[in-house]
Design a protein around this nucleic acid. Sequence first.
DNA 1: CCCACATGAGACATTCATGTCTCACACCGG
DNA 2: CCGGTGTGAGACATGAATGTCTCATGTGGG
Lengths: 192, 192
Amino acid sequence: MSHVGYRCLMAVDRDQVLRSAASLLTRKAGSTMDEVARAAGISRATLHRHFAGRDALVRALEALGIAECEAALEAARTDEGPAADAVRRLVHAIEPSAGLLAFLYTENQLFEGEEQNEGWARLDAGLTELFRRGQESGEFRIDLTPVWLTEALYGLLASGAWAVTEGRVARNDFTRMIVELLLGGALRRAEP
Amino acid sequence: MSHVGYRCLMAVDRDQVLRSAASLLTRKAGSTMDEVARAAGISRATLHRHFAGRDALVRALEALGIAECEAALEAARTDEGPAADAVRRLVHAIEPSAGLLAFLYTENQLFEGEEQNEGWARLDAGLTELFRRGQESGEFRIDLTPVWLTEALYGLLASGAWAVTEGRVARNDFTRMIVELLLGGALRRAEP
DNA sequence: CCCACATGAGACATTCATGTCTCACACCGG
DNA sequence: CCGGTGTGAGACATGAATGTCTCATGTGGG
């Protein structure tokens, strides 16, 4: 009856279900609750015992995505060293979460309501601060606003994840492609 | 009874309805057929007389988006002059369609089916060719594949349109922000 | 051995968007 | 004035996904 006993008896951990759902919805955003359940190897009833409904599931995925991104932001130590290197570390750390991020990016349900998770605001603030620091240190150009650079990074992460799942970009090139484009742009540099 | 008479008597042109739907769905992707109808100033019945169903409407919007992008690709004359200038002309020409493009970008229904509009393939080919030309002329770096640059451009257009509607980026900065980031990147150049 | 408990399977009601239909009305040309 | 025609309003059926419920089953611990 104890909580410990309860959790240990669960055939599938709630977190496992969440990961499975993230994996499936990343590939097929319109999946049914039934499909999500089957993908996790459980029944629809059990899925409902973990998440009250589809909305709750999506919200949980949102929280998971935010948590992973915040962990990546933390792990990348974006306040240390050159900003360009920090961006590289950050993208590399976010890479495993890029698929989930892309899914959340297209789940407009999350943003249509008036109240949106404050986690996004914290993430935005962290990223924006990184770009602002890079501008202040003279590494980044100042004619592109930190806010836009943040938005652009989200967009590149999403399209990068999409391009990988579609097989148009090699999985191993993900981080490099994004970082090189975001920082260096497409133009050939004069001389290294 | 003639076709001419039929069309002239329509209070609202089918194209107007399509534009209105594009405008609404760009802002609220999950809008109902009823909302789309009301936004166009017509009844749901009339909307169904124009488009057999929601699927048909989305397909029509897809065709519209493709047509607009192809027109922009044409107008930008991407096979003339420096590739960088061509990219700038192209983004500028696509700007009015960016919102619609962003909507289609998130409408995964369009890509889940096995058969997808060949217009996208033509667009991809045109964009990829532009980037390839830029690489060949020595303007663009060769370590970023033309396919990735194409995908990245889509992503930047979508996130740019989104950022503008959210008020995070000034509407007038749309083209410049995208082009400058795509071509020049965030790093401060050594010297102009 | 027995009990507690999580689970799977399935039935069931509900909700919502959609698709279809009818009918009355306004308008326009003859 | 009158018939044709497009339209709006609304009723109605449909289908899909969802949310809720019950019950049988298996398993693990006491």
